[in-house]
Amino acid sequence: MRLATISLGALVLALPLALPLAAPASAQGVVNVYCSVQVEWCTLAANEFQKASGIKVSMTQKGSGETIAQLKAEAQNPKGDVWFGGTGDPHLQAAEENLTEPYKSPKMADLHPWAVKQNTDSAGRTVGIYAGALGFGFNTELLAKKNVKAPACWADLLKPEFKGEIQMANPNSSGTAYVAIATLVQLMGEEKAFEYLKKMHANINAYTRSGTAPMKAVARGETMVSISFVHDGVTEALAGFPVKTATPCEGTGYEIGSMSLIKGARNLANAKKFYDWALTPDAQKLGAQAKQFQVPSNKATPLPPEAPKFADMKLIDYDQAKYGKSAERKRLIARWDSEVGALPKP
């Protein structure tokens, strides 16, 4: 009796300890993918790769910020194999912090130069899989109601009619907002760029925490204009919202959605197979199928008709290598914090 009851007491401790024994998946024929694009795209990619290769994909969808946080926390004992998608800066940062593995895919020759440059900039640790330009999203119904002309240039955003009508993300938490600031700095020079941001502050109604939130707010009429990636606007427009997008006439920056192999990956061979596959046109078509309209990095991938075309935009020569460095990033964000973020609410 006593024995039984003591065991009962210990059971509470023993039970949870015994549980995990049925834990992580088998090392054979598996690849663990951390996926930082939209969930539909992630699922589609997982299924298609599984069909094409027979390798089981275990996919975890998380934003790029959460993913790099996870990579750091797991650095001593990585659980993922490939990191697919998400804006390029965190990938460059991961490369800088030695969290990812250099790899030169045989598919490299088929890629656009910007995708290859991402690879050389990071000493081979990451590669571009898609690109998306930064621009404005606006709600056409709200514009019509207020009888305001849609913004076409960065300068337009300072106009008084947009007072309290613009939303952008907070660079402390969002990579999108950081791309915007880095773009302005490269376009105008740092001093002028901060002058501009300070002036625009009067027109901003909120610096949201998430980078995609401003476009969602535009779609639902919660704000008139957003500073966002333009391909996000296409998705909203297709969902039936009165959203249009524009890229600034002065020129604009862009993100390079990237992919990296995680250092210490347990299924490195399969991870490389996934990596090579993700650079083929067959894989890159899936973005459009999931209603995501970035520009794919493989030259042979057909561009969906809805996608914003790079040819129609004025793109700056975005220096991913310089502005992807964490020191530069920390410095610019700190400056934004003290000079812009801390300003009183208009």
Binding site: G65, A69, D89, N172, S173, A206, T208, R209
Partner: peptide
């Protein structure tokens, strides 16, 4: 706070973004 906060930050969201945001500062 994450859904309704706008730019009104509180400690719990700030901690979250210190971990996952652009700062990555544990």
């Amino acid at each position: 706070p994450i859904v309704l906060g706008g730019d009104y930050g509180v400690l719990s969201t700030e901690i979250y973004f210190a971990v996952v945001g652009a700062q990555l500062d544990y």
